[in-house]
Design a protein around this nucleic acid. Structure first.
Length: 290
DNA sequence: ATGGTCGATTATCGA
């Protein structure tokens, strides 16, 4: 981080200039994802968190606002660009970046829809930031094991796997990040008590297989090695005193392509951000790159 | 005690 501050401040000496030559190819170093549960309710908190944590690119989920309602100005005021999927009052995602945003794409190729508008494609937003393709994803909630929303969720994940495989086939050296709220707890340790989830979504074999299939198409969970369980979660229900009781779920993930995974130097889940009045029910997940 | 809490849109619904 010291090197990086020198680089940004332009105060590095001759030795720093050599570092700069190396750093040019690595346009950003800190990537995060956060289900904010309404960006309007959380704008001040999100801005304070960004500044405190020196984050370059932040993918947001559950923005819960139309494009015209997104509080762009508060992010632009601190030097971030904003891309917003903008179509849904409920399921929207966004990406804010201080290293620029290019090639904005709403919805991934083959992404299935659900019913009528508000547009289901708002669940996925792809942008390129500093040579890294970042997808902010809000995977559908299956609601319950017999609900047609679960079949939709499984289809959605299967199509995402297909898209991911196609991107990597086209360019095996691509730096791709699939980040967001996956609404899947892939391992038993990713919930506090499997007994509670016996007949619930998020832990069903079908959902876990769908998630694992995305990994199988060439992606890696780059956070788990730096934040191993058990007892490590990214979400705690507002009800039932779940957070103080440490009863949560690990359902937010950063999946990286091989070229991007090779750049990862660290990761953490910011559990502190779940504390206090005005918190989202999800914690931010942060990945450092070199 | 079969709820408990948020958020958005308006007495419910989704998470």
């Amino acid at each position: 981080m010291i090197e990086r501050e020198l680089f940004r401040a332009g105060t590095a000496g001759a030795r720093g200039c050599r570092r700069r030559a190396v750093r040019v190819a690595s346009a950003f170093v800190r990537l995060a994802t956060w289900n904010v549960n309404s960006i309007r309710a959380r704008a001040d908190r999100a801005v304070a968190w960004l500044e405190r944590n020196d984050v370059d690119v932040l993918a947001l989920q559950e923005t819960k606002c139309r494009a015209d309602q997104f509080p762009r100005h508060v992010f632009e005021a601190i030097g971030y660009e904003v891309a917003d999927s903008g179509l849904s009052q409920w399921n929207g995602v966004a990406i804010v970046s201080r290293v620029g945003i290019e090639d904005v794409e709403i919805g991934f190729p083959g992404m299935p829809g659900w019913g009528d508008p508000p547009a289901p494609e708002a669940r996925a937003l792809g942008v390129t930031c500093g040579g890294v393709r970042v997808w902010s994803l809000y995977v559908p909630n299956g609601r319950s094991l017999n609900d047609p929303h679960l079949a939709y969720k499984l289809d959605w994940l299967a199509r995402l796997r297909d898209a991911g495989a196609a991107w990597l086939e086209e360019d095996p050296s691509a730096q791709l990040a699939l980040v967001g709220d996956w609404n899947v707890a892939p391992q038993d340790d990713d919930v506090w008590d499997m007994g509670v989830f016996a007949d619930s979504t998020h832990v069903s074999p079908a959902e876990r297989t769908a998630f694992t299939d995305v990994l199988g198409s060439g992606f890696t969970d780059v956070v788990r090695p730096y934040a191993p369980g058990p007892g490590v979660y990214t979400y705690w229900d507002y009800t039932q005193l779940r957070f103080p009781r440490r009863e949560g779920m690990r359902i937010d993930f950063v999946l990286a392509s091989p070229a991007l995974a090779a750049r990862v130097t660290g990761a953490r889940i910011d559990r502190n951000e779940r504390k206090g009045k005005g918190a989202s029910d999800h914690a931010p997940v942060v990945v450092d790159l070199e």
